[in-house]
Nucleic acid binder design. Structure first.
Length: 816
RNA sequence: GCCGAUGUGUCGGAAUGGCAGACGAGGCAGACUCAAAAUCUGUUGUGGACAACCACGUGUGGGUUCGAGUCCCACCAUCGGCACCA
């Protein structure tokens, strides 16, 4: 047998799959469908990196197995191609981003094909294609018409380098996620999407899908539902606060501690600073503090401020509604305008942040809950705040005294309602989605401003796509607005409602937009009448299995679920959730165990490895590297073992003999391997599935020969992992093609071993082993153990206290 | 600070509460070769003994159990995420 020529064989099968459209899927009501989805990549200039093949190969294995199990499999691929790196490259090199994207996509596609992934290339989508973004714009218009898209003046994160507004979610470590430029707060008019309207549904929907706990939890934590109360505190000039005057509203999750509230704090952006400016003796100091705080991002305010800071609003006071005492009001940056009402009632005895602030400003700390901590030590609010809500009873709290915390919560909430001083309130941390970008390389937002109509007017659906116009310069304008803002030919238009003069919106959409619905378009990618046909939706949706990175399990997943839930409510899609099952793969680190990055110089080019060792070897190695869900460190040397395994697979041809049934010597091993590989694929335990196949081939070589039936079984198991070599060897020894084969069943009774080794222990220490028939009864095992010479000697007449036998495993005799 | 995850040979990693280290890499020894590569065979947790064998071993300290890498409590370290969320 000649040496395994992976270059020729892999090329041969990739061409075969291409020419025969082997993996093209069409609606077929005769077959059950299976929709496998991977996160489509951003086609960067560097091409694929070592992280891409891991999830793609994993879902390819699942897709190939499902096809052999008789499913009609949809496994599509596309390009999430809008975004900053392309735009920055275009700016630097004076090439149109469309050209940059075209080149990058070409490179990515060639690389993908060289891995042999079984994508349906006829369903390829590209978010920057007008035929695609036409429908992204169309979905935006549906949101707009439903009142879920609105424009708002608000403090936003402003990247001083990119000169763009960032969503909170895109600010990492106080820096711009993309360019690491300084992020400050700036007030700007922005398009917003009301994701908050779906907050509860986004939590509830998780009950109906199969997500790992850590992913469901991250969604729930991000949405951040809490139950508490809104409470109104009367405010007025110090010493003269009237109960029926102005009120300052707070949100609290601990209304039970109301008696312990000894001061209030408002956020630096709170409107009451200017509202009460005339009554404040130190307004200049307050404004200076607020200005300084406003320049910082929420992250900096929360992370970098080690010691509490703040300024008292000298001149006004508030009244605690239960104690009826006047209490001071402060401004401090530890209170955020973006959560709750932007004001808090401070309870220093039972909130550590308030406690620190109170210590610093020498404010009274009143204990209203007394209890013990987790160690059973009585609470002492002189040392730190007591935040436990499980243990403890109310003290110094008037009509709440002697109640526990939850009873106190109910009672005070009822009291607030009765007196009209507050009410129960469910609050979400989730904020509306900032949807505008002042950038070129994104979808234009299809609305126009009409003075006569007095507002924003939707571009008619029949005018979509609203094409991204040609510009000379892709840089945001000097004032930070999009490059579209300097194009008169784009801006000036007529109002579709009144026909008068109107101006187009010049902001574009964020990259998240196109990726929020791409899985729908795959079902019907060439439809120019609808974003997806009813028929395609009903057949293909929902996605059966969606795998992607852990880094997308909050933002992308939440955004796309939000769009889907909106489309479901608008009767445009037929399922309440887009993805039935979601899994997440671990990151691949460089050989130095650091995150792979160009600047660190630890990146790995997977296509160089394909050229060197073959796609099948690299595919196997990416799956063999470790637990799929965990972070893995790259080790190029590890490919060697996988390459060797394939060379040994090829060499099976040298020991091939006749035979249409499994031989006695290998039948058990083959059935066990079928079981192991089948089960491991379902649990994404690809590493142990490969190990099982390696074990089998070792056994085959020990036996010294393999017959045709055994080789066929081996190749079927291997084919999802290493499809090229399996296809070739199958073709050499069978009629037809391996992808038309059925996946294998195993017979449980044939998986069992005839004889098993039983471990004999005394007091849990192994003393001897013995072979017995599998399934031997416990009593027989114990009797046999006691007859064993080594055990007899070890027992030495000691008193037996207990005898434990586990069938097919062990016997343990406990002695004194 | 909070939340989440992870700690196992030289390395990547296996182990429904039941033989720790499967499988692979690397090392060592040998076969083949003029030689090397490739391939094949054996060996490879640590300490002690010529040896059968003994002791110790899954981040640390406790606990539950006949039996713990696995379950519980506390702690340490590393990595990731974060919005002081009231």
């Amino acid at each position: 047998m000649e040496k395994y020529d992976f270059n020729a064989i892999e090329k041969k099968w990739q061409d075969y799959w291409d020419e025969n459209e082997t993996f093209h899927a069409e609606i077929d009501h005769e077959k059950p469908k299976f929709y496998a989805l991977i996160e489509f990549p951003y086609p960067s200039g560097q091409g694929l990196h070592a992280g891409h093949p891991r999830p793609y190969t994993a879902m390819d294995i699942i897709a190939r197995k499902r096809r052999m199990q008789g499913y009609n499999v949809l496994f599509p691929m596309g390009w999430d191609a809008f975004g900053l790196p392309t735009e920055n490259f275009a700016i630097q090199n004076k090439i149109h981003p469309r050209e940059v994207t075209k080149n990058n996509v070409k490179k990515f596609k060639e690389q993908c094909k060289s891995f042999g992934w079984s994508f349906d290339w006829q369903r390829e989508v590209d978010t920057t294609d007008p035929d695609y973004y036409k429908w992204t714009q169309w979905i935006f218009l549906q949101l707009f018409k439903s009142g879920l898209a609105y424009k708002k003046e608000m403090a936003v994160n402003w990247c001083t380098d990119c000169k763009v507004v960032l969503a909170n979610e895109e600010v990492v470590g106080g820096e711009c996620e993309r360019c690491h430029g300084e992020v400050i707060r700036k007030v700007k008019s922005q398009w917003m999407l009301k994701i908050t309207e779906f907050a509860q549904e986004l939590i509830d929907g998780l009950a109906d899908v199969d997500y790992p706990d850590r992913i469901a939890q991250s969604q729930i934590n991000w949405i951040g539902r809490s139950t508490g109360a809104e409470v109104d505190f009367a405010v007025g000039t110090a010493g003269n606060v009237s109960a029926d005057g102005d009120v300052l509203r707070v949100y609290t999750t601990r209304p039970d501690t109301l008696f312990g509230s000894t001061y209030m704090v408002i956020a630096p952006e709170h409107p009451y600073i200017e509202k009460w400016a005339n009554s404040l003796n130190n307004i200049d100091e307050i404004r200076a503090y607020a200005d300084k705080a406003a320049r910082k991002s929420d992250f900096e305010r929360s992370e970098l401020v080690k010691e509490k800071s703040g300024v008292r609003l000298d001149g006004i006071n508030a009244i605690n509604p239960v104690t009826e005492k006047e209490i001071p009001v402060f401004v401090s940056d530890y209170v955020l305008m973006s959560y709750g009402t932007g004001a808090i009632m401070a309870v220093p005895g039972h909130d550590q942040r308030d406690w620190e602030f109170a210590k610093k400003f020498n404010l009274p700390i009143v204990e209203v809950v007394a209890g013990r901590d987790a160690h059973g030590i009585p609470s002492n609010i002189e040392k730190c705040a007591y935040e436990d809500t499980e243990d403890g009873v109310m003290v110094n709290s008037g009509f709440l005294n002697e109640l526990n915390v939850s009873e106190a919560k109910s009672k005070i909430t009822a009291w607030l309602k009765e007196t009209g001083k507050g009410k129960k309130k469910i609050n979400y941390k989730l904020r509306d989605w900032v949807f505008s970008r002042q950038r070129y390389w994104g979808e234009p937002i299809p609305v126009v401003w009409c003075e006569k109509c007095g507002g924003w007017v939707a571009v008619p659906e029949e005018d979509l796509p609203l094409m991204l116009p040609e510009v000379d310069n892709y840089m945001p304008a000097e004032n930070g607005e999009s490059p579209l803002s300097v194009l008169d030919s784009f801006i000036n238009t007529t109002c579709p409602t009144c026909g008068g003069f109107a101006k187009r919106e010049t902001d574009t959409m964020p990259q998240w937009a196109g990726s929020s619905w791409y899985y729908l378009r795959y079902a019907d990618p060439h439809n120019d009448k609808e974003f997806v046909s009813k028929e395609a939706l009903e057949y293909w949706l929902p996605v059966d299995w969606y795998n992607g990175g852990m880094e997308h399990t909050t933002l992308h997943l939440l955004y796309s679920r939000f769009w889907h839930k909106f489309l479901f409510a608008a009767d445009k899609v037929n399922t309440p959730e887009p993805y039935l099952k979601r899994t997440a793969h671990g990151m691949i680190l460089g050989e130095d165990s650091q995150k792979m990055s160009k600047s660190r110089g630890n990146t790995v080019d997977p296509n160089a490895l394909v050229a060197e060792s073959g796609a099948d070897s690299v595919r196997l190695y990416e799956m063999f590297i470790g637990d799929f869900e965990k972070t893995a460190t790259w080790n190029t040397a590890g490919i060697k073992g996988c390459k060797r395994f394939l060379d040994r697979t090829w060499a099976l041809m040298d020991i091939l003999v006749c035979g249409n049934e499994y031989s006695e010597k290998l039948a058990g091993s083959i059935h066990r391997t079928i079981k192991k590989v089948s089960e491991d694929i379902e649990q994404m335990k690809f590493n142990t599935a490969i190990a099982a196949m390696m074990t089998l081939i070792n056994e085959i070589y020990t036996v010294g020969e393999i017959n045709k039936a055994e080789l066929r079984a081996f190749l079927i198991l291997l084919s999802p992992f290493a499809p090229h070599i399996s296809s070739e060897m199958y073709e050499m020894t069978n009629e037809g093609a391996i992808h038309n084969e059925q996946w294998l069943d195993f017979e449980p009774e044939l998986c069992a071993f005839d004889k098993v080794e039983i471990v004999l222990q005394i007091n849990g220490k192994i003393k001897e082993r013995m072979m017995v028939e599998s399934g031997t009864a416990q009593s027989t095992l114990i009797a046999a153990a006691k007859e064993n010479e080594a055990i007899k000697a070890a027992l030495g007449g000691k008193e037996i206290i207990k005898e434990i036998a586990v069938p097919d495993k062990l016997v343990n005799i406990v002695v004194k």
